[in-house]
């Protein structure tokens, strides 16, 4: 930008880029740009939510059954963690506006810690899915050798599986996706609330087919991993952003006159939080009431 002839003659405020006339114009541009970026992010996740909506409305019982095997405690805890991190992020912006460098740095560090805790909890959950054969891609689950001496639980009909019991570890020599429980579908069948599309999706030969049911549960887990995975990717990018922000805030770059980067990073961080605010009830809580 130093190549511009005009730069020689015009006094520039620090942080003002060459194409703008003044800081106001720059701030307004950057802020509109960031919001448009968030608009495209909304549409990006919107595609996934559309897919979710279609399958959820088509197979509500399979989705409820599948959702019950997600741990709502960890999910809820993560929601709280993200909300706290959103608060600290909002306070970072607040302290930047107040030109308080030390509190900015502290708040950024806190935000990063909570972000990392979120990812750690996500790791615990993913590991849990790995152990229980709930990763939809074949071969990515823990391989469990068939134990000849163990009693053969799988011989029970799928609708007699106790869905409130902790998930059992089944033999899974090739690390495939495992699912043995269709009790919720059976319950819905007995209460006569299965929709035609569900009967089409779950039945073969006039009764519930665990293989077909499993296929649909697998779709839920596929969506779960894609949605939370992309969300986690956004968290990781956010943490990268925070690292840069920490460095620049440490140098004391931000004050009440110039805090646009803090504010913009904040917008991004809050957006990621908002996505999770929707993912939590839609993925973790949707079949919870059938368990009680």
């Amino acid at each position: 930008m130093s190549a511009h002839a005009s730069d020689k003659f015009v006094y520039h405020e620090p942080g003002l880029q060459h194409q703008f006339e003044d800081m106001k114009q720059q701030e307004e541009s950057v802020s509109i740009g960031m919001w448009l970026f968030l608009a495209q992010e909304i549409m990006f996740f919107g595609g996934l939510f559309t897919a979710y909506l279609v399958y959820r409305s088509r197979y509500p019982m399979a989705f409820a059954a599948a959702s019950n095997h997600l741990d709502a405690f960890w999910g809820g805890l993560n929601t709280l963690v993200l909300i706290v991190s959103s608060l600290t992020m909002a306070l970072t912006v607040y302290y930047a506006q107040k030109s308080n460098r030390n509190m900015q740095v502290i708040m950024i560090i806190l935000t990063m810690i909570f972000g990392a805790v979120f990812l750690g909890v996500k790791g615990i959950e993913y590991t849990d899915k790995y152990h229980h054969g709930l990763v939809p891609m074949a071969g990515l689950n823990q391989r469990v050798k068939a134990d000849k001496n163990a009693h053969h639980e799988t011989e029970k009909p799928c609708w007699e599986v106790d869905r409130n019991a902790p998930p059992a570890v089944h033999p899974n020599p090739r690390g495939e996706f495992l699912w043995t429980d269709c009790s919720l579908a059976k319950l819905a069948q007995d209460e006569n609330i299965l929709t035609p599309s569900e009967r089409f999706g779950y039945y073969s030969g006039g009764q519930i087919d665990i293989e077909k049911f499993k296929g649909i549960v697998r779709i839920f887990y596929y969506l779960y991993f894609v949605m939370t995975g992309l969300h986690a990717l956004h968290m990781i990018i956010g943490l990268g952003l925070m690292t840069w922000l920490l460095w620049t805030a440490w140098k004391g770059n931000y004050n009440s006159e110039y805090y646009m980067p803090v504010e913009m990073s904040g917008l991004y961080w809050h957006f990621v939080d908002i996505v999770w605010i929707f993912l939590f009830p839609l993925l973790y809580l949707l079949g919870r009431h059938f368990n009680h």
Partner: peptide, 10 residues
């Protein structure tokens, strides 16, 4: 958050 968790169990 707590409310949504609690309502989901009813």
């Amino acid at each position: 958050t707590i409310l949504t968790y609690w309502v989901a169990t009813i």
